[in-house]
Each structure stands twice: as structure tokens, then as C-alpha cells.
Design a protein around this nucleic acid. Structure first.
Length: 262
DNA sequence: AGGACGCCCTGTTCGC
DNA sequence: TGCGAACAGGGCGTCC
């Protein structure tokens, strides 16, 4: 499930593969993934252009165009992007293919179609239009604490709210709360600034650790619950077993012993 | 403002 | 064995 670390890895990957290539054709295989733009318009926005920068904000990617403007890309749950040097063996979940003059292709694949592609004048314009909060890796402790503490809802729901901070999904929110020993259903507004500061620090550490591990959970440090996030799995600190509960409409895994209920 | 749903979508897993 | 229900999950919309 692409969250900030996976999207950052995709950003680096695209940066290393598609910059500077001349776009010759956009082939929309499934219009369902286009958001507020049609295939023809997207085609005319892109053809003849080149990508000059790949920018990430939270879980959102922006492929900046030489002539200004950018293609936006969101991976939803199952989305991925890859560059193919030669002809690609077609996959039934390929949703959009961008051909380059140099013969390569950028393929956007998305099994469950929760992903989205659109066009924006700038990343900033898109971020404002969607009212996304600051990026989880960029936000200062001060701003994060202020924003998060102002919400009277479970801390888990606050971390998942992209308007508060952008980039955290269900899995990493569990890890951040486990690392800080905070129960997922404690109200954000009930946490002291000091503890919320700890959540901020853990958020940065967890996201960076996952990027460093190339998002391979097996390579995460010992003591990370994402190495085995399931009900009944042993607590990484040896304090019993993990438990599942629904918070803010999502399944949260936590350690009842390390993260005492409010 | 926030909670509780429902919907989108499809592959997997579970229960009968 | 086989079928359908439940589930997962990000984001958005609706109603209370």
C-alpha cells in the first residue's frame, strides 16, 4: 500500500528513468483513473513535452513539465509506475502508458483503480485545491503539534487525515503510535504537546527507516511492529500480543500492554 | 467538527 | 469442492 516511503521510492525511480525524454503519445487504457481531465486534453498537455522534475508531497507525485504545468499521480492502494525500455508485456491492470520518442514507455498500473492521474498548473495549486496538509517529512515539530492537537478525534484518525499532515497511511500510523506507546484511540486534543512532539519525531524516524529499507518490512529495525503486523503477533518489545481494533474506520493494530487505553 | 457509513474496485481469504 | 460473503484500503461524499 503506497504511503509516503513507497511514493518517495517511486519518485526517485522516476527521477532516474524518465527525465528529459520526449513524450510522443499518451495512451489512456482506462479513463476511470483520470481525474478532471479527459484523454485528449491530457494528451495535448503532454505530447511534445519532457518531464524535468519529479516532486512528491505526501502520497502525491507531480511530474513537472518543461513548458510548465505538471501531471499528477496518486497510487491509491495498488498503483505503481514503471519505465519499460522495450515493448512491455501488456498487463490487464495497465491504466495509462506514456510513450517516449526514444522508444521507452512509462506505465501506470493499478489493479484496484483507486489511483488517480490528472493535470495541474503547479504542485502548489494542486495541494491548495485538495487542501493537503504539510508533507510528513517536511513539517516542523511546532507546526505538526499545533495542527494535530487542534483536532478532537482519535490520534490515529488525525495521522490518517491528509489535511492535517500528508503522507501517513494506515500501516505507518500504527507504527508511529506503537513507537511512541500511544493508544490509537486517544483524542489528539488530549495529548500533551510534549507527547505530540514525540509522535512527530517518531513519524520522521519511521518514514525514513522505511525509505532506507526500500520499503521491505523485513529490513526494518528490530522493534518495529510492521515486521509482523497482525492480530496475535508477538509484541516486538515482548509485552504480550498485538490486537486489532477499528479506529476512524480503519483497522488499527497495537499492543494493549505498551499502548494502554485512555 | 467529527463520527458513522457507503461507495469505488478486485484479488484473496474465510465460512458454510 | 464450490460458492458467496467479508475484507482490505485511500479518498471522497453524505447525513446526522
Amino acid at each position: 500500500m503506497p504511503e509516503l516511503p513507497e511514493v518517495e521510492l517511486a519518485r526517485r525511480y522516476l527521477e532516474g528513468h524518465v527525465l528529459g525524454l520526449a513524450i510522443s503519445r499518451v495512451n489512456v487504457l482506462d479513463q476511470g483513473i483520470l481525474e478532471s481531465i479527459g484523454p485528449e486534453d491530457l494528451n495535448s498537455c503532454l505530447v511534445g513535452q519532457t518531464f524535468v522534475a519529479i516532486i512528491r508531497h505526501g502520497k502525491q507525485l507531480f511530474l513537472g513539465l518543461k513548458g510548465g504545468g505538471c501531471m499528477t499521480m496518486h497510487f491509491g492502494m495498488t498503483g505503481s509506475a514503471c519505465y519499460e525500455e522495450k515493448g512491455r508485456v501488456p498487463d490487464r491492470h495497465d491504466r495509462l502508458v506514456i510513450d517516449f520518442n526514444e522508444k521507452g514507455h512509462l506505465v501506470f498500473n493499478d489493479q484496484r483503480k483507486f489511483g488517480a492521474i490528472s493535470y495541474a498548473e503547479s504542485p502548489q495549486a494542486f495541494i491548495e485545491q485538495k487542501r493537503l496538509g504539510p508533507d510528513a517529512l517536511m513539517v516542523s515539530k511546532k507546526e505538526f503539534v499545533e495542527r494535530a492537537i487542534s483536532h478532537r478525534k482519535p490520534i490515529k484518525a488525525t495521522l490518517l487525515d491528509q489535511h492535517v499532515v500528508a503522507g501517513i497511511g494506515n500501516l505507518y500510523s500504527d507504527e508511529v503510535l506503537f513507537q511512541t506507546k500511544v493508544h490509537p484511540s486517544i483524542l489528539s486534543s488530549e495529548l500533551s504537546p510534549r507527547r505530540m512532539g514525540h509522535v512527530h519525531r517518531a513519524m520522521g524516524e519511521v518514514l525514513r527507516a522505511s525509505i532506507d529499507a526500500r520499503s521491505d518490512f523485513c529490513l526494518l529495525p528490530e522493534g518495529y511492529m510492521l515486521r509482523d503486523r497482525s492480530a496475535g503477533a508477538p509484541c516486538p518489545r515482548g509485552n504480550g500480543h498485538l490486537k486489532a481494533m477499528v479506529v476512524g474506520g480503519r483497522t488499527a493494530f497495537f499492543c494493549p500492554s505498551c499502548q494502554p487505553s485512555p
